[in-house]
């Protein structure tokens, strides 16, 4: 019984963070058909910015998170105007390859800049809340619970934005059919820029959440980015509901593997699971073949 509760609790916290991390990636793919391989860089920038303002300047965790999120939106806008918009302007016949290569370059640049500014030594973010309670034999850290709830809150706000706001509806319309969106008077350039900014903000917010569990290092974004990619592929490339459901399933899976097989098996099982998904359900949970997108 305790094992099951422990898996559900850990799975919930992990799933919430995975979802926050992966939703930005899914948004970007859904709207721009851009698989951002610099997503790990965005995650780690969030952690480092939060560390800088919280640890060095003594800013409270909540405010550090807001500052990191704003920085992520700024980095997203910079990425759009300096990299994606020029690539869109060129009208590359291989948009997918061009953007993947460009985002790999961006990831390397971000890592190099972080190394230059913060050095190679590991950093740790102070916890948002200290303390713990013991439920049966399970130790529940207030910080983990808080981070899980905060991630859910971020997802709820993102869901509201996408379902009910003018910009959110416009973003989803562009993601589904950019020509039809044009005919509604929706300016695609502004939507693309805001998508990348929102994705950047979500990624850095997730980076702060991750940073309160793991030590920060310049290349530390790679593993969570790979998990985010697995989540997005499993959810159905570009599908937001699919991404959120997939994140919680994978969170539970990782928690179960860690309990029954040990933490070292978490990644191999995750990628074996992704290969299985690609074979059994190539479009993921909520994905649809590209030609059905109209």
């Amino acid at each position: 019984m305790n094992t099951a509760v422990s898996i559900v609790y850990t799975g919930f916290v992990l799933g919430s963070i995975f979802a926050t991390s992966a939703v930005g990636l899914a948004l970007m793919y859904g709207t721009l058909r851009f698989l951002n391989l610099a997503h790990g860089g965005f995650l780690i920038v969030g952690g480092y910015v939060a560390w800088l303002v919280a640890d060095r300047l003594g800013v409270p965790f909540y405010l550090a998170m807001v500052i990191a999120t704003v920085a992520g939106a700024g980095l997203g806008l910079l990425t759009y105007f300096s990299m994606l918009r020029p690539l869109l302007g060129v009208g590359s016949p291989r948009w997918d390859i061009a953007t993947i290569m460009a985002s790999v370059g961006l990831a390397i640049i971000i890592e190099a800049v972080i190394l230059l500014v913060f050095g190679p030594r590991l950093k740790s973010l102070p916890p948002a809340i200290d303390g713990k309670i013991i439920v049966g034999t399970i130790v529940v850290q207030y910080n983990a619970l808080f981070i899980g709830v905060l991630a859910v809150l971020i997802l709820v706000v993102t869901h509201w934005f996408l379902k009910s706001s003018r910009s959110g509806i416009a973003l989803r319309a562009v993601a589904e059919n950019v020509q039809a969106a044009y005919l509604m008077g929706i300016p695609s350039g502004r939507v693309f820029a805001s998508t990348v900014a929102i994705a950047g903000a979500l990624a850095t917010a997730a980076g702060v959440l991750l940073g309160s569990f793991y030590l920060l290092r310049p290349s530390g974004g790679l593993d969570p980015m790979m998990t985010a990619i697995v989540v997005v592929v499993f959810g159905g490339l570009g599908s937001i509901p699919g991404t959120i459901v997939a994140a919680y399933i994978i969170g539970m899976l990782q928690a179960a593997v860690s309990v029954f097989l040990g933490v070292k098996w978490a990644s191999p099982v995750l990628f074996a699971f992704m290969i299985l998904v690609l074979i059994v359900r190539p479009y993921g949970l909520y994905g649809r073949p590209e030609d059905v997108r109209v």
Partner: peptide, 8 residues
Amino acid sequence: GDLVFPQM
């Protein structure tokens, strides 16, 4: 072809 947004 109408071009409605099919998933919305």
